[in-house]
Design a binder for these strands. Structure first.
Lengths: 116, 116
DNA sequence: ATTGTATTTAACTATTAAGTTAATTAACTG
DNA sequence: CAGTTAATTAACTTAATAGTTAAATACAAT
């Protein structure tokens, strides 16, 4: 795995267990056991996944008694989002999200007209 | 590498050479040799990177005489962009891009006032 | 002090990845 | 046809990944 930040982030995200862990952290801090609970996987495996996420700066961990609560640190996701910018014109029908939003509004207006 | 599409895409992007190849393809179709030119790497290595990108559906290849021109197929990037949506609220100061855009406009208006 | 719960570390295995060199296929050119 | 250019395949090496089990550490609770 190459050394640059973006590669680390993409690599960390290239695993469904790790993405599920991140998703689980969107609702707030969780302990390792809480994070491990949904998976049919041993604890050491989860510990390793958390290490990958931590080294990619996608999570941070604190200590509370015997627990190591984890929380999301989304900086690297922002970097990906910014990296993505150069490709948006290739997959977005309209130029940007404002454009999308305005089109959505127009459609909604038409529907409102038709439905009222 | 797990089997799901998103994992394949993230994996393919977790390499700076492959990301550079994609970036190079934003300016249009390129042959394998053209893509390989900037890198200090043998051709077979490039062939392998292209295979990874192709299996991730990030590029497609055609045939023209002895050349195999590649072009971008950004569908999987769109999937990542959509996946990202659930995290935007964590790294975007404002709720969405429309919000950003409106704030930008306001700032611009103020600047215009100040500068005229 | 002992026991229990949370988590990590160590040691190991199997698989995949990224690169190399050498050989091969495919098509053009003279 | 012979030679050249474009690209791929094969075989191999080295290193990294994802998981396991078993042992160790850290703190809590009785």
């Amino acid at each position: 795995m190459p050394a640059d930040q973006l590669s680390h982030t993409f690599h960390a995200l290239a695993d469904p267990t790790r993405r599920a862990i991140l998703a689980s952290l969107t609702t707030g801090e969780k302990t390792v056991s809480q994070l491990a609970e949904p998976f049919e996987m041993t604890m050491p495996a989860i510990t390793k996944h958390l290490k990958v996420l931590e080294k990619a700066n996608l999570i941070e961990r604190s200590r509370e008694a015997q627990y190591r609560p984890c929380h999301l640190t989304p900086g690297p996701l922002k970097n990906i989002d910014e990296w993505m910018e150069q490709y948006r014109r290739f997959f977005e029908a309209s130029f940007d999200r404002l454009d999308d939003y305005l089109k959505q509004l127009q459609t909604k207006d038409k529907n409102d007209e038709n439905n009222q």
